[in-house]
Write a protein that binds this DNA or RNA. Sequence first.
RNA 1: GGAGCGGUAGUUCAGCCAGGUCAGAACGCCGGCCUGUCAAGCCGGAGGUCGCGGGUUCAAAUCCCGUCCGCUCCGCCA
Length: 598
Amino acid sequence: MYEEFKRDKYCGEVSEQDEGKRLRLTGWVHRVRNHGGVVFVDLRDREGVLQVVAEEKTSREAYEVADRLKPEFVIGVEGVVRRRPPGTENPKLKTGNWELVAEKIVVLNESAPLPFPVDEETPVSEELKLRYRYLDLRRERMRENLLFRSRAYRLIRDFLYEKGFVEVETPFLTKSTPEGARDFLVPSRLHPGKFYALPQSPQLFKQILMVAGFDRYFQIVKCLRDEDLRADRQPEFTQVDLELSFADEEEVMSLSEELVALLFKELLGVELKRPFERVSYREALERYGTDKPDRRFGMELVELTDLFKESAFKVFREPAASGGKVKAIKVPKLLSRKELDELTRFVRGLGAGGLAWVKYEKGALSSPIVKFFSEQEKEGLIRRTGLKEGETLLFSAGDKELTYKVLSALRLRLAEELGLKREGFDVLWVVDFPFAEWDEEEGRFTPLHHPFTMPRKEDLPLLEEALKTDRLEEKIALVERVRSRAYDLVINGEEVGGGSVRIHKPEIQQKVFKLLGIGEVEAQEKFGFLLEALRYGAPPHAGIAFGLDRLLALMLGLDSIRDVIAFPKTQKGVCPLTGAPDFADPKQLKELKIKVLE
RNA sequence: GGAGCGGUAGUUCAGCCAGGUCAGAACGCCGGCCUGUCAAGCCGGAGGUCGCGGGUUCAAAUCCCGUCCGCUCCGCCA
């Protein structure tokens, strides 16, 4: 048996004009306060909470039902909206001036006792939240997050349609794309032994749509990558993906700025200053040690390499003299022994040998290493860093990458620990990426963006030269000078978007593949279809993709993208709600001709 | 693959770093009282394989080893 009950409106939408009206409302019992003779029920739905009053004197029947209500029962209430008696209004509620006086209460469904309360106060472990996601999503914060996300979808779609974009879906069952991430594979029953790959992004398809003449394409689309998770990485995540024909980086960036600024304006009421600032990849690395800097606080890296080229201190001299780096950040306090030990452990965990430090204390430099420094070095150190009484320098010396990594991580950690101001939004484009980097381990060049990125026109000759020479060192030097026409959008130290002008000439694409060590045969096998498409009148095109989960989390000030995703996975890629992934039925495996190894 | 933090009533945690009334608190839950609360209040009650396995010891939530799970980070990944 069950009752049926139709509602007139949302609880959260009851307002002035409902006063005196008879209304039927439905929702969940948020809280019950039973005073004996009168019961207050906070009735909650998607839009908010309204207080229902069940008085014995008004309706004995309603009162008796209310007396039995428990949290999260689903009920329907019929009654009259009245202004609350003076002095009993609740300013914390949107509907706090009114209440529904219950004449009839119907229990539409009961709820078992809850594994955790549906309120904002109680912190709940991530696993429980995900296991009972439907309860977690009832909580105001999560509900707001998803509603926020939904408003974002609508703004994005409206904006892009307005700009003449065509929304096209691309396949999920597709071929492995060469973007470097591990693919999720789907076995093909009709072709035993063969597999589809789930798309890491619609990159190739959107380029082909350009060739097809859909000169402005967009899609809000899931992308799937089988890599280890982080707070800002899920195995499936959402991109706002777009591509434009006959466009260059300026057009893409300008349009992107318009879109991002619109979202901030409409969703947060924040006006972003346009055009967004641009910072070169090189400058970002030198000043912040990362290609996604958070510039809302200082502690920039200070260059010291040349100063220590001939130092008596070997730890600094060796990297300085042999292509490495010596850099430091200045911390605006005297760090204690304990803090320094803790930071040393931290940088060791990142691969550093240790942590050199110098304090300016009682009018002098104080440090175990300062005895190795010449007067000139000490002077230079103080001059360049502007070191003052009560401050500490932290150093990193070694190969470039490690130095950047260590100081960038220290900088972020110290900002957190020292509670440095990190308010507002720091929005910038990172541009002038090198086209490719030499990967020592793999013994080949890897593209910084992806292999379809157009190199700068004026750098093409360098690329030609690099292809001609057999001397590796020379080749690396040449390639490192080639810049790509790529751009990343960085907000508050997070990469929220990235794109490029694509290669539309098959000959250039072929050369790039060759340089990247992707052989003719492999290129044909993996994405011959793109190369072929480029031969049939491919227009010049460029595009960008935004990590929507990251963007939304960042706008909402959340630490993890899990909080803007309805059903996210744990760090091990498990969905505690459904229990996925799970073993497959032997029958299914047999049909797919798949045998699981021990 | 690696590093760190965490795992104790339904929930959030204390207890662990000096092993021996250490099995506790709050909230929730159950029962009762209560006519204006809004994280209602008051009285009473139930509730725990201390993640799991092994070891040390007269004795382990506590020490050691292994393992699983969650989170953060490195590797990996835009």
